[in-house]
Design a protein around this nucleic acid. Sequence first.
DNA 1: CCCATACAGGACCTCAAGGTCCGAAACCTC
DNA 2: GAGGTTTCGGACCTTGAGGTCCTGTATGGG
Lengths: 146, 146
Amino acid sequence: MILSHRCEYAVRTALFLAAADRSGYVAVREISAALGIPRPFLSKTVQVLTSAGIFTSMRGPAGGLALARPASQISLKEIVLAVDGAGLFTECVLGLPGCGDRTPCPLHDQWSPARARVHDMFAAATLADTAVRTQAGDFRLALGAL
Amino acid sequence: MILSHRCEYAVRTALFLAAADRSGYVAVREISAALGIPRPFLSKTVQVLTSAGIFTSMRGPAGGLALARPASQISLKEIVLAVDGAGLFTECVLGLPGCGDRTPCPLHDQWSPARARVHDMFAAATLADTAVRTQAGDFRLALGAL
DNA sequence: CCCATACAGGACCTCAAGGTCCGAAACCTC
DNA sequence: GAGGTTTCGGACCTTGAGGTCCTGTATGGG
């Protein structure tokens, strides 16, 4: 599994908010129902993104979640970093601590560019770009259609 | 974590066997000491590779492990498949079941080539090639030097 | 034959991620 | 300000990976 379950949920939730593109807040209850994610667990997950400054939240009636910035200024990499940390983009494929250009493992020279490719994909993808693809056509965020 | 702990151990063990390149068998005890892997856990891990036909084993005095085929005919992909399964090479980055070219998730078009890049790296790397790099120079399989 | 050696494999323990639940706090409407 | 709605945040349960231990069984040497 390349991303943790929690991180998959976080990305899908962010894409949902970006694709919804409505003024005001979206309730966690609604997101959880639309995306098929257990509500209490989603609650915990969005707290991480809220404290990371990616989401904002409002309690009370008409409360809910919203993106803290325009979707075009939020990259998927940012979300992955907030939830899973930098491990995916920095760690040695063999799990050897301190593996790097100076003291490489036997796979470092091959793994390093492949890892960079994955990193660049997440860094280049903004919520706005990806959300457009969601609205455009046959793409989906949940088991069924969006 | 891109590979499970178990899989990291499996790859390092295979590289150790390939780099040792001695006739006869190498004891699990020796590998566990050299690589800093808990012996009982390595035992279990090695059984998977043995039953997958990648290692052979021999009990009793002078027993131990050996590669079942020449190191040039064993790819790292084969080891990953045996231990972690095909998930790394096939699963959707958002964890959506059934994501594919027909019913893609919003990230499928970007993730698919990045995933292919990772796949190709593991498929192209043979134990022989990688072991040569281990013997050659400053590469390492354990926390310290090899 | 007998015994030391080494893998095979089952039973068990530990721990963190995943998942659930409920009360507290904040907010809006009336 | 009273009450309903919604997130916040702690406490708890479950599950599977990671890790340990012990007995069984095969092999080779004395």
